[in-house]
């Protein structure tokens, strides 16, 4: 049978299309990737901060800076501690000198030294990257240099980041900054290099009062997951739809 021109063209087109489509549809996976794709992730890191326990000593900030090689005297930090002083007249005074690194040794807040009888409540709030389930920083990175792991942690590829600062602008929590030495975006990783080896993050290990804990929210037997699922916990800035994974016990409405 004489092959018709239509048939011939059809075959050629189909062949060309499949040639183009093959590398798009069939993705060759690294062995690690294949393994990760097969098993459903049973791990999702989550952080628990008990603000009732925090004493504002700043050990977490010190430990973090040393562990992650963030210049010790720079004002930026992967984690920081905020002090809140709510006065009886409703005014809220907040500070975080040197990111809370050296603790809060002066009673002066925002240039004021409120009298004890004027203070309604005062407390400390540790902050770090929320490793959001829906991270805006990952969404806006123009080159894909920042990415979310299956375990939920958001990382930055220091060899890929172009330093545009879009991720810094898009984080509602102020968790990101430029690493002053590497000139790339920098952020808390829950000390991913430690937790993947079964260790605790530096800040968790350094906290003398157990105000900071990390756990696997997908494991019902995990003590941290138990607290998060059974206690009344809050997250920061829920309204941005980022689904943050740092949970707070005793979060006050004054906290920003």
């Amino acid at each position: 049978m004489q092959p018709s021109r239509r048939k011939f063209l059809k075959t050629v087109c189909a062949g060309a299309a499949s040639l183009i489509a093959a590398p798009v549809i069939l993705k060759f996976l690294e062995p690690g990737e294949a393994l990760a794709a097969m098993e459903k992730s049973k791990l999702r890191w989550a952080f628990l901060v008990d603000t009732h326990k925090c004493i504002g000593c700043g050990f977490c900030v010190k430990a973090c800076k040393n562990e992650n090689e963030i210049p010790y005297d720079a004002s930026v930090s992967r984690t920081w501690v905020e002090r809140y002083v709510v006065k009886k007249d409703g005014t809220v005074l907040i500070d975080s000198p040197k990111a809370g690194r050296d603790g809060f040794t002066s009673p002066e807040v925002e240039g004021q030294t409120p009298e004890a009888q004027d203070i309604a409540k005062a407390f400390f709030v540790p902050k770090l990257c929320n490793q959001c389930e829906n991270p805006p920083c990952v969404q806006v990175c123009p080159v894909g240099a920042t990415y979310q792991l299956k375990e939920g942690v958001v990382l930055v590829d220091r060899k890929w980041c172009i330093g545009c600062g879009y991720c810094i602008a898009s984080c509602p929590y102020g968790a990101r900054f430029f690493n002053p030495q590497l000139k790339v975006a920098e952020k808390c990783t829950f000390c991913y290099h430690r937790i993947k080896k079964g260790m605790k993050p530096a800040c968790v290990g350094a906290c003398p009062v157990g105000a900071r804990q990390i756990g696997n929210i997908k494991d019902p037997e995990d003590p941290v997951a138990k607290v998060i699922t059974t206690s009344r916990v809050a997250v920061l800035k829920d309204e941005y739809g980022t689904d943050p994974q740092v949970y707070y016990l005793g979060l006050d409405r004054a906290v920003r």
Binding site: V140, W160, C161, I162
Partner: peptide, 23 residues
């Protein structure tokens, strides 16, 4: 000029991440 890593600027063209407006 504002990039902290201007020598990597070509990544915007070669490895664009399309959920980003800049890409």
């Amino acid at each position: 000029l504002h990039l902290q890593q201007p020598l990597r600027c070509e990544e915007v063209f070669f490895t664009p991440h399309f959920t980003s407006a800049i890409a």
